[in-house]
Amino acid sequence: MTRQMDGQIIFLKNKTIPIDKYESLSRRYNFNKIKFLPLIKHTNLPNEILSLFNDLSYLESLKYIIVTSQRTVECLYLEVIPNLTLEQTNQLFNKRVYTVGPATGEFLRRCGFKDVIGDEMGNGNNLSDMIIDTLNPETAGQFLFLVGLIRTDIIKNKLLNAGYNVKEVIAYATEPLDNNLRHLQEEIDVQQENWVVIFSPQGITEIIEYLRDHHSHNIKIASIGPTTEAYLLKHGITPHVSSPKPSPESLLQVISSYE
Rank of each mutant, 00 (worst) to 15 (best):
P226A: 11
E259F: 10
F36C: 03
G122C: 00
K220P: 09
N44M: 10
F145D: 09
I9G: 01
V197H: 03
T152M: 05
I155A: 00
T139M: 01
Y29Q: 08
D129Q: 15
P239N: 04
P176A: 03
L52G: 10
I10P: 07
L252W: 07
L251Q: 04
R96H: 11
A230E: 15
H183L: 04
S57D: 14
R28D: 13
M5E: 15
E60H: 14
A162E: 02
F53M: 01
Y164G: 10
L146M: 09
T72V: 05
L62F: 07
Q253F: 00
D213C: 11
L37K: 11
E138M: 11
L56E: 15
P38T: 02
R151E: 06
T228H: 01
D213H: 14
K13D: 05
Q191I: 12
T68Y: 00
G141K: 03
S243A: 08
N30F: 03
Y172K: 10
S257V: 01
I208G: 08
W195L: 03
H240K: 14
P248G: 11
Q202D: 14
K156V: 12
T174R: 01
D153V: 03
P102H: 12
Q191F: 14
I204K: 04
H42W: 12
D133M: 03
Y64C: 05
K41F: 12
A222P: 13
T228L: 01
E74V: 08
T43Q: 12
I207Q: 11
Y77C: 07
D20P: 08
N218F: 03
Q4L: 15
T205P: 15
N83Y: 11
L252M: 08
I198Y: 07
N179W: 06
E74M: 06
S128W: 05
S223F: 02
Q202W: 06
N30Y: 09
D189N: 05
H235M: 05
M1K: 07
L92T: 12
A230M: 09
E79R: 12
P176S: 10
E206F: 06
N136W: 11
R109M: 07
I81R: 09
K114T: 09
T227A: 05
A222H: 08
D189L: 04
P46S: 10
D133V: 11
V147S: 05
V241D: 04
F113D: 04
I198C: 07
I117N: 11
T68Q: 00
M130V: 12
N32W: 06
A140K: 06
A140D: 04
Q88K: 13
Y172S: 03
E209Y: 11
E138V: 13
N123L: 07
H240A: 14
